[in-house]
Design a protein around this nucleic acid. Structure first.
Lengths: 213, 213
DNA sequence: ATGACAATCACATAAATATGTGATTTTTAT
DNA sequence: ATAAAAATCACATATTTATGTGATTGTCAT
């Protein structure tokens, strides 16, 4: 299907792993190895000359972490694909890596053939990750997505809170909802009581932070 | 490794696919099929009796979508695993599914053996998804992470805006930052000008919506 | 039928906020 | 060195908010 080899650069401080994977890539005729580095600085210095299709990047390395390095590479060449390679599945490492622009995240104990699959996946525009990593990512989703705390606001109160979030004054809200300003006041008093706040901005902050909408 | 079969229920309106996968599961001796449904209502009615380890859930079905159905199941049995099965990789479907509590998301054109792998993965606590789906999920990460609109607020202005978001009054801000209330006023005037708002709550809303922090 | 709740309105007042018009002192960049 | 930007403070005043204390009218479930 593919007409040319996928070029790879590996950055990994552990010589054994680095050379193992290097040998693997050299022996597979779908891939070509463009470089193998033990730390980030020498890679960055040589970057312009050896830019590959895909990076395999270790996370914990002396000097500069793979995450920082990935961010640097991405800032210069946004289109390259970077697969992080690590021993730990640690939430903050995963998220920092993803934020740095990594497109894949696999564990070092992954079978070698699957590492090659991951390189192919990422080169095809996919985002390879082990199911356990994916689980962490999804967990993040649910946390932030579900946090819809219920404050037992009535329908009308939610409407009014919504207008507060939109930045309307009491007067404008009264006009919009065709009620008197005193009614607006009354509702807002109750909203404050239920949300445990005592100012418009406090209510707005709570509404947005707790995703009442 | 596993001491008993993984029980599965499939919900899929297309008879051909439903029966194909049913046959596959019945023939594999690591799995047992606890039920196959063509739509959600009959499944929900029977749910208490046939609760499986893993659901395979089609998304587009007449009556109730698989996403709504997944949310219902999760609200009753939060621990069950649900793998969504679909023909489309559509951003909103993916995210709605994940929010509904799905732990996996695979395409119907996935090879049958990989569907079985996905069931095993999800049962083992993983989150199987194809690399292309994973890519979408990651894309979401970068979007929300990067959307830091810049309003050219100065350091001090950001500090003060931050205190506004925390719900402090002018007076409290003045005390917290050891400056006079008139200075606070002055900064807030400038913040309003830069954010194009004219009230505390408007500023707070903008700060949170545009993720200034 | 009746008590609980939701939604509406009124009046009063203290406190906080929004806005204008200045001015002085540091910092920062050219 | 010097102009621009950032941070500080002051005073005045109109508007808006926050809060309390009521009251009336529906709706809804027991």
């Amino acid at each position: 299907m593919s007409d040319k080899k996928i070029s790879v650069v590996i950055v990994e401080d552990d010589a054994q792993i680095r050379e193992g994977i290097s040998a693997l890539i050299k022996s597979a005729n779908e891939f070509s190895l463009k470089g193998a580095f033990a730390e980030c600085h020498s890679l960055l210095a040589a970057l312009d000359n050896i830019l590959p299709d895909v990076f395999l990047m270790d996370i914990s390395m002396p000097g500069m972490t793979g995450i920082e390095c990935a961010a640097k590479i991405k800032s210069i060449y946004p289109a390259v694909n970077i697969v992080m390679l690590t021993v730990y599945e640690n939430d903050s490492q995963i998220f920092d890596s993803l934020r740095a622009g990594a497109s894949g995240y696999i564990l070092k104990n992954t079978p070698l053939e699957q590492i090659l699959d991951a390189i192919k996946d990422v080169n095809a525009g996919g985002a390879p990750m082990t199911p356990s990593i994916a689980k962490r990512v999804l967990g993040f989703f649910n946390e932030t997505g579900q946090k819809t705390i219920e404050y037992n606001l009535t329908l009308r109160e939610k409407e009014i809170l919504h207008e507060l979030v939109n930045g309307l004054s009491y007067k404008k809200i009264a006009e919009t909802l065709f009620i008197s300003i005193d009614t607006v006041r009354s509702h807002i008093k109750n909203i404050y009581y239920k949300l445990h706040v005592s100012s418009k901005s406090g209510a707005v902050a709570k509404a947005l932070k707790d995703r009442i909408f």
